[in-house]
Design a protein around this nucleic acid. Structure first.
Lengths: 250, 250
DNA sequence: GAGTGGTCTAGACCACCAA
DNA sequence: TGGTGGTCTAGACCACTCA
């Protein structure tokens, strides 16, 4: 899955030690120099590993002092980025399950066709209902474009589609765009989520891409408002995207 | 504001060229070797600049081919991270304004006191209503902790608090945690946002920190559901945060 | 002043891609 | 086969913090 280069192994190792509180919150990691000796590597490689932990919000580097372990993780489970429901669920220790309502090979519906897709783009359509403690919580409607997704067995849909795509099909998942809005629920959605008529539903629409920038997945996720929670960790960005009109503070 | 080091200048310059389509979407940037010559710097420095652009979703690097300019920015204005309302508003070209409803020095209310704060934490409380096209859209309730925020004039609250903190007070804003939920609106909130009684409201709660990990801001932002939109760009993360129980796909 | 992280360099070797 | 990005190295100099 992830390349077994030095910086990733080191980042993983330190992340694991933070998770097990071998490096406790509010304490400093060993200095970069010490980590060089510990892992037998150069300082730039150590720094690249620490950069990953910084981006994740596990540590904060303070000039002249060291790398401080943050204790944010204890309160906020990071859902930023895309996380597969199954594993998120396991991590949070909820009693949850997935029902596959539909799975069929079809073509992309007209309203989802854009410049990025073909006119008659074949795709697998999957509709899944996520239950938390026997209560409907999320309805997922996924289109998995084919190509690049060649096959999609029902067992994969019930389990983890991402694990299947990466593990079995060898696809390299790279990035995604996501949009969260609140809308009036469509009757078919309302019924499946046991919402009130005319009730509001949280909609997360996303486009997911492979490493070669191929679009492979278009998803709409409908969340019961009372079950919805999105947690994010964000670092201040140094680049100003629109220098003349706007300044991005983070 | 941002340090004027080589990698930031280069990242900013390339980002600007992408924005002005000097480097057009779906084309490749000059190779890293060419960029070295162009900016008269080493390859690692070029690569650190490109890493910033990659993280922002401006480019995608493809092994053996080059750095491809993505065209995501045209469709999705990045709101990930914290963005000040004023500048976001300018960038999107909306007719928006801010009304400062309250501004007073007080102490943090009991429900916001945690391990991270003092028992009687002095703070500035600011309540602001954001109007888009004369319609109430967002109600912000900010507590700015004092220290580190020493002063907060009303003009700064009406303009941009972040610009004031960074520009005038010299504070180094670094990172934030954010949580989005949907809740029944409190009557005082419902009234100010002109919501229906018992209506739902989108709540964004955030904690913001300085570079030395000092908490300086606790905010609750109440959004009219019909005006709310959150857009995110996320890259697959290589580090597994909870290796034994869960696997973070991104 | 000793130790820390921040930045930068000039190489090196590799895997991947295209022609 | 030549060009691309991916990774790593062993130094260097700087600014900052703390005793």
């Amino acid at each position: 899955m992830q390349p077994a280069n030095k910086q990733n192994i080191i980042a993983q190792d330190i992340a694991s030690k933070i998770h097990h509180e071998i490096y406790a919150p509010k304490t400093f990691l060993p200095s970069e120099h010490q980590l060089c000796e510990l892992y037998g590597t150069s300082r730039e490689t150590i720094r690249k590993a620490l950069d990953q932990l910084t981006e994740l919000g596990l540590i904060q580097k303070i000039k002249g002092r060291g790398s401080l372990v943050l204790d944010i993780q204890r309160y906020t489970f990071p859902i930023s980025g895309i996380t597969s429901f199954k594993e998120l669920n396991a991590a949070l220790g909820m009693h949850a399950c997935t029902k596959v309502l539909h799975l069929k090979k079809t073509v992309l519906p007209p309203q989802l066709i854009t410049e990025e897709t073909n006119k008659k783009q074949p795709a697998f359509f999957v509709e899944r209902l996520r239950l938390i403690n026997q209560q409907p919580a999320v309805l997922d409607r996924d289109y998995l474009l084919s190509p690049p997704v060649s096959t999609l067995p029902k067992t994969a849909a019930a389990d983890s589609i991402y694990a299947y795509l990466e593990g079995k099909l060898g696809l390299q998942i790279s990035y995604a765009t996501k949009e969260i809005t609140v809308e009036k629920a469509d009757p078919t959605v309302a019924k499946k989520l046991a919402l009130l008529a005319d009730g509001l539903v949280v909609v997360v629409r996303s486009h997911s891409y492979l490493e070669d920038t191929t679009l492979f997945q278009i998803t709409a996720s409908f969340h019961r408002p009372d079950k919805f929670k999105f947690i994010d960790f964000a670092r201040r960005k140094k680049i100003l995207l629109h220098p003349t009109t706007a300044k991005k503070e983070f």
